[in-house]
Nucleic acid binder design. Structure first.
Lengths: 142, 142
DNA sequence: TTAGGGCTTGACGCGGACGTCAAGGCAAGC
DNA sequence: GCTTGCCTTGACGTCCGCGTCAAGCCCTAA
């Protein structure tokens, strides 16, 4: 199988495969015309890479899985190095979700506060003599 | 106040301030030597930018807040456009946290499965005639 | 014969928010 | 006078995972 077919079967592009090869993640035999030639095992490697990429793993983080498969294992995560990556990623995801959740709450609080402030301005405006709300080109301070 | 002092007071760098200026977020007067000269109001603008940046807002997303302050409002989020950014960001954060949480669960599941598989191999190995686990340079398949 | 499609390598582009270096002006201290 | 330190503009580098274009070879169908 050549590069275009493998790429299509894995749902990616030939450019990506050449990139993986340059990174040392994927190798290929060459036929007499210099074209890359792949086997079914390469499809397994590629599927492993794509799955982890879809999870948000960096390319370098897929390397232990690829090497595990190349070592003859049926699953890319049958090796200790792969498990270590899983665990590290879980910790990263937990930390990230924690941070994002904290930011989310802070932003939500800011939004509530700002909405309350707008409401109070509106209430003042409804009383005779109140100021005007809105930001439509008020005063350009350069 | 000149660029270095303002940057230090805002906890950022002169390079960042020039970048904001190039993006049209921050402006500065020039003294007779061509140096940028800032006032206290610029510190307010800069603090607003930095706060939102720390929240993970893109630079363009801080623009409504900056313009709100420049329009004379005491708070950068006193304007409808700023509130819209808040709401959009909340939705983005919710979506992102949801995706990351789903990935986290999938990865956790993969880890449990892989650990179980390793455990089963270990159990077989403890029985006489079992195979060897581990991946330390087993067989290089090129 | 020509058009078309797939393959090759090499090299630049992208996005975002700057970092870093180059080359030079301006002022203060020793 | 010289060094140090702040400022100026301009321009290239960074990171990552490719996209895209260029120039050219190989084969096939019309």
């Amino acid at each position: 199988m050549r590069i275009g077919e493998l790429a299509a079967r894995a749902g990616t592009t030939a450019r990506a495969l050449r990139y993986y090869e340059a990174r040392g993640l994927l190798s290929a035999r060459r036929d007499e015309k210099g074209y890359r030639e792949y086997g079914e095992g390469d499809l397994r490697l590629l599927e492993q890479i794509r799955t982890l990429q879809d999870f948000g793993f960096e390319l370098e983080e897929t390397r232990p899985f690829v090497e595990c498969l190349r070592a003859g294992h049926l699953e890319g995560d049958s090796c200790p190095a792969s498990l270590a990556v899983y665990r590290r990623k879980l910790a990263e995801l937990d930390a990230l979700v924690g941070q994002l959740t904290a930011v989310r709450e802070t932003v939500a609080e800011q939004l509530r506060r700002a909405e309350r402030a707008v409401g109070e301005l509106a209430a003042e405006a409804s009383v005779p003599g109140g100021p005007e709300p809105g930001c439509e080109l008020g005063g350009q301070l350069s």
